[in-house]
Design a protein around this nucleic acid. Structure first.
Lengths: 340, 340
DNA sequence: GTGAAAGCGCTAACAG
DNA sequence: CTGTTAGCGCTTTCAC
């Protein structure tokens, strides 16, 4: 819409009556330029409203002070909380964070990965969509620091920050078992997702520890989408398949799912049904304690995770040092899991 | 950590035994290259695991197929919902979205603005931190399409997508007045934020329409931070200043604030106090209907807003056409506002 | 169908 | 302190 091309450093030099080198100097090392000259350049910059071309700068300089993060779902508070932790750590070193959402689509993940890499980011924080991290290893091999978020690297050669999901599942199931429940419906995601599988392992461990048989106790339902409506739909189908007799204990792979469960149960059998169904969620999102039925949930230290992830990224970029940080989740008991 | 520099197109050319022009051709116009040559180049690319340098590409080409969005707060579901709408529209044209969070800090906004502009984004979607949009106009004047999100441009020369906040405030207040309330505490943000001021105007309009005097009816409290804990703190202070006698009707500038209010009231006076206080929120976030006291809220069509914003951005980039789209909010009545 | 070469805007090294 | 200049890696004419 504006035919004229952006003014370049050469234009600035011309109108200020200096050389491009001098302009570059006032841009990057102002103190090495004589004040009167500097002023002349600065007013030329203002006059032309010059903005330096980041691509050229970067092409010349090599890398950049930006790091990219690719989250699974920008709408999930868990991830945005982690993002805040990342930002806070990055700000300390005057680095900036660029966010993208893969929407759990490997193609989108790949697209953003390529975009970030092509633009020479310092590093990448990624919540992988799939189980394989080979493509991420490749990227790291090419010189971009990569840190896995919310996914253990299992000696893959990538730094990672995760929570111990086995323990998380174990905490949740043990709590339900302690309440006397002999059967648990587990609304889980597909086992291709590492955390989902791990939480199941934890559930089974708790069941075994209680002297019971996992196969007899746990009824795992695999959700297509890990959000409220996906859970609502899945549970609606479950109820239909079980002649409307509702489960007594439900463990949900995240709080959004638990909210969907509450929504479904309330619709199907009102508050009474809700009250006699023990529900445990995961993530302990902000509003978990404010729900109609305050939600018992497994809390993950999101902000710390983000902070640690950024820290690992910088370490990796700096010295090549690789590490895995595993946080321990904690069960926050509220009334949703306590039935009478 | 890896001393060797990234392989360039020249390296690929050398190992494939062709010229750089040919490599560029297989990258950009594969069909103009003879199949055997193309294969040779492709395997050289694979062998070297070549990734093209986006900066150089962009420097040469001019602009880019990326648009940036700068949101006020990445943790606010309202904004992330809008972001999803943006992404969905952008994906149609195979454009990618880069997200950043200004955290309501003008300095951070400026930082990201500059970063995006320097890197030659196609356009920018921004939720402005301040009231002035002069700096954004400047950017647009330099050839970057800019669309204001959640802020009317008021003939400023920028496209914008917003909701009619006056109507929003009016809907909320009118509802409360209809319930017979004669005084309303309005937990609002600072009036520097356009929407906050507009919602107040709407509140006053509703009060006047009911034949009452705004000054007598409305007690506006200005929040420092527009989230649950900010609201909790502010209301706690309000109660202390009023000898613990709680307000009967509270209008909250957003749902997070309303959640904070519920938290505070529940702590101060339990469910009973909560039950006799009429609360209206704003945004109708996903969980609003699932709160302990399901929240009456003013709903804004977030996804459509994002979609429209992206649409406007493309139009602006394409033809320079500027437009303002104003969405009408809608009141969703739930039990939080219905006292007995 | 392929190669050679110019140049995008910038920084940094070196001269003066 | 300031100017000159050589690339950074890529795309794109223009020849062949």
């Amino acid at each position: 819409m504006n035919g004229r091309r952006r003014p370049s450093i050469a234009d600035v030099a011309r109108t200020a009556g200096v050389s491009v080198g001098t302009v570059s100097n006032v841009l990057n090392r102002p103190d090495t330029v004589a004040p009167p000259t500097r002023e002349r350049v600065e007013s030329a910059i203002a006059e032309l409203s010059f903005v330096r071309n980041g691509s050229a700068r970067q092409l010349r300089q090599g890398s950049i002070s930006t790091v990219g993060a690719i989250l699974l779902d920008i709408r999930n508070p868990f991830f945005t909380d982690v993002a805040r932790g990342i930002e806070d750590r990055l700000a300390v070193d005057d680095l900036t964070l660029m966010l993208a959402s893969s929407d759990d689509d490997p193609a989108r993940e790949a697209k953003y990965l390529r975009l970030f890499e092509e633009h020479g980011v310092l590093g990448l924080l990624v919540v992988p969509t799939g189980r394989s991290v080979d493509h991420l290893l490749e990227i790291q091999r090419r010189g971009v620091a990569v840190v896995l978020l919310d996914a253990a690297s299992a000696a893959s050669g990538l730094s990672s920050v995760s929570v111990d999901d086995v323990t998380g599942g174990e905490l949740a199931a043990a709590h339900l078992l302690e309440q006397g429940h002999q059967s648990i419906v587990f609304l889980n995601g597909p086992h291709e997702i590492r955390q989902c599988e791990a939480r199941r392992v934890g559930v089974d461990r708790a069941v075994a520890a209680a002297g019971l048989e996992p196969d007899q106790v746990v009824d795992e339902v695999t959700l297509a989408t890990l959000d409220a409506s996906g859970a609502d739909d899945a549970l609606t189908r479950w109820l239909a398949a079980h002649d409307g007799s509702a489960p007594r204990a439900i463990f949900c792979v995240n709080d959004l799912v638990a909210i969907g469960v509450q929504r479904c149960l309330r619709r199907q059998g009102g508050t009474a049904l809700l009250a006699r169904t023990a529900i445990v969620g995961y993530d302990d999102i902000d509003v978990a304690g404010e729900l109609a039925l305050p939600l018992t949930s497994v809390r993950q230290p999101t902000h710390e995770m983000g902070h640690a992830a950024a820290e690992l990224l910088l370490r990796q970029a700096d010295s090549g040092e690789i590490d895995d940080v595993v946080f321990r989740p904690e069960l926050v008991v509220r009334s949703s899991s306590l039935v009478t």
